[in-house]
């Protein structure tokens, strides 16, 4: 039976993983299951920037995917980046099975503020839905309330909603019901 897997990359406390799993189960008609945490791949670390290459983490997550994987979402506490960008909240293979989301910049502590568990929960759910949406073929949405709208800073994460808009939702439904004629 196929499943949507969630896997920690490096140390991640249990609560955020549970929140993300609950959000995924609410939106995707698939059993959601957790895999044992992965060790952070050594080559992912960029000492010059003190950050982690998201592409290397995506690769590690892909390698860990069981045969019955429909989608697999890596969750990490480290700060993600790619060579051209200063940081990423997450990254996904468009239409592909693998995505990763980082909690690092979703935490108030990152901005020198006191921890806020409720806020972290909201942000983690939004960004997990966002990256998983990409794996189901959704691209960025112009509806600023939709989880698929692009957030390039934390204020924009907070400004958007924790739901898909009707248009993105309809795309997902077509996808789930395996109707033909789907476009990405």
């Amino acid at each position: 039976m196929s499943a949507l897997y969630v896997v920690a990359v490096g140390a991640v406390p249990p609560k955020p993983l549970e929140w993300i799993e609950a959000a995924a189960a609410e939106w995707f008609p698939l059993p959601v299951a957790r895999l044992p945490a992965l060790r952070m791949p050594e080559r992912a670390y960029d000492p010059a920037r003190g950050q982690y290459h998201s592409v290397e983490i995506l690769k590690a997550v892909a390698r860990a995917a069981p045969a019955n994987t429909t989608r697999i979402l890596g969750v990490t506490e480290v700060d993600l980046a790619i060579p051209v960008l200063t940081f990423l909240f997450g990254q996904a293979q468009l239409d592909g099975p693998v995505a990763v989301v980082s909690l690092c910049r979703l935490r108030q502590e990152f901005y020198g503020l006191p921890a806020d568990e409720a806020l972290l929960r909201e942000r983690a759910a939004k960004e997990a839905l966002h990256e998983l949406g990409h794996t189901f073929g959704l691209t960025h949405c112009s509806d600023t309330r939709c989880s698929m709208s692009l957030s390039t800073d934390i204020a924009l994460v907070d400004a958007k909603g924790g739901r898909y808009c009707p248009r993105c939702g309809a795309h997902l439904v077509r996808r789930f019901a395996a109707l033909d004629g789907e476009q990405s």
């Binding site: 939106w27 698939l30 309809a170």
Partner: peptide, 30 residues
Amino acid sequence: ERKSGNVKEAAAALGIDRSTLYDKLKRYEI
């Protein structure tokens, strides 16, 4: 579609539980 794809809310609207909805959708395997 009425729930923008939210499985939990759609199952509630149909009066079935989520796992029943999964089962029914399974024949249209994702």
